[in-house]
Design a protein around this nucleic acid. Structure first.
Lengths: 233, 233
DNA sequence: CGCGCAATTGAGTTATATCAAATACGGTGG
DNA sequence: CCACCGTATTTGATATAACTCAATTGCGCG
């Protein structure tokens, strides 16, 4: 199993104050006073592609806020089947269940190079008591996760295989800033959509033939959003 | 369209203090002081089966905490397809998205006789500021909704039709207090599982033939949990 | 008792899964 | 830089499960 690339541990929250992407992560709205209340180490961790951040069933002393990269959350069934139930990207939180003392609901596996801040739940608990701003940030994240979960069901688990693949590509494209986006392996696409690897492959191959999808590199692609939307939405 | 049965509006929060099921609903952990901070009317509303509580896209000035009964949340796709993405029961919250000022993500439709407390979001917002207990209650509800959404994907949208129906019955049974549980229409089962009405019907009919499922009345049933689990989990 | 809706059943069609093989691709070492 | 290897992807043939359409049965309610 691949593992952690770099771990920069540091005491206190001084670097949080000056974090270049603070506006995107959990602590966006905290003020200097708030940071002074943080007395536990917040680690800044980088993972290489394919790393496990945590496993389903693990005890969860941490919440992870994603600075960059893409993470899949995998859930296993008793019979061995597994589904990818969510993708997390910059600004999202992983391991929310830790805030209620639950064990991990999923495997969290990196698709990309991923950089996260690992925040002890005690920090969240403490700040939560006194800083309404963090509350709001948490509530927003939670709400976003929930409505994302709903879309996952209606858009990605409904309709035939081609529709599902098309909707997945549109979602991935939408989430991207530039005009290219992350193209998952066909196996992962299948696990997201509840279809086989082959079905995911057949759909993507067909889209390529129609010139609705162009592979730009190993795992980056471009799509004709208008056409895919017209055909499948 | 069927509609509201009874609406008992009242000022203040006096009745909340004495609510018989307060330990199950959102305000379980509030104290007397907290209730005195409530200055907007909380309505106590009953709906008959098949009523719309709100529609996807509606503006949402309220959150609903469910006192009794069962509610389905329906989400529509542009092409007209629709999925039931969640079921809500006693203690759950409907319309959480209102807390972020968003419009309704779903149609909320009653399956049962349903009784709810309709709480203006301003009440939540105000209390949230000062009462950590309400925070915790909200976070717990949110977390529950989210992990429920994940199960919905892995258990109810994965595997063949019979497996899905079996897992749905197991979930419904699990949520019930006595040994009978609410048996949805085949159409609703289909909308929850992403299969056709006929497929849902064929699976349930088969389970009846095997004596793994017995209909007790119109929409109540019993299952042999051990056997369904052994066969399909 | 009969009406209307829901559930069941069956036959035929289609989409997807399954199984197997061939091709493309990225990464590695010479 | 090229050749090779292992893995991912694509493709095809077949089997199977689900959908579609239509008809029948069952059930609750007036």
């Amino acid at each position: 199993m691949k593992n952690i690339l770099i771990e920069k541990a540091w005491r206190g929250a001084d670097r949080c104050k000056n974090c270049a992407i603070r506006h995107l992560v959990l602590f966006s709205d905290l003020d200097h006073q708030d940071f002074d209340r943080i007395h536990h180490p917040i680690d800044d961790i980088d993972y290489e592609p394919g790393s496990w951040i945590y496993h389903q069933g693990d005890e969860m002393p941490f919440v992870y806020t994603i600075r960059s990269g893409l993470i899949k959350l995998i859930q296993h069934l008793p019979n061995g089947d597994r589904r990818i139930v969510r993708l997390l990207r910059q600004g999202d939180l992983a391991g929310l269940e830790s805030l209620n003392g639950q064990n991990a609901d999923h495997d969290a596996v990196t698709l990309d190079h991923v950089s996260v801040c690992r925040i002890p739940r005690s920090v969240i608990k403490t700040l939560q008591r006194d800083t309404p701003n963090l509350h709001d940030a948490l509530i927003k994240r939670w709400q976003k996760a929930l409505s994302g979960a709903d879309s996952w069901i209606t858009k990605l688990s409904t309709g035939n295989a081609k529709q599902r693949v098309a909707r997945l590509l549109l979602l991935l494209d939408q989430a991207s800033t530039d005009d290219s986006f992350f193209l998952p392996t066909r196996e992962d696409m299948g696990a997201m959509l509840g279809v086989t690897t082959e079905s995911a492959s057949k759909a993507t191959a067909e889209f390529k033939r129609q010139n609705w999808l162009k592979a730009l590199s190993h795992n980056r692609a471009w799509i004709d959003t208008d056409e895919l939307q017209r055909q499948f939405d």
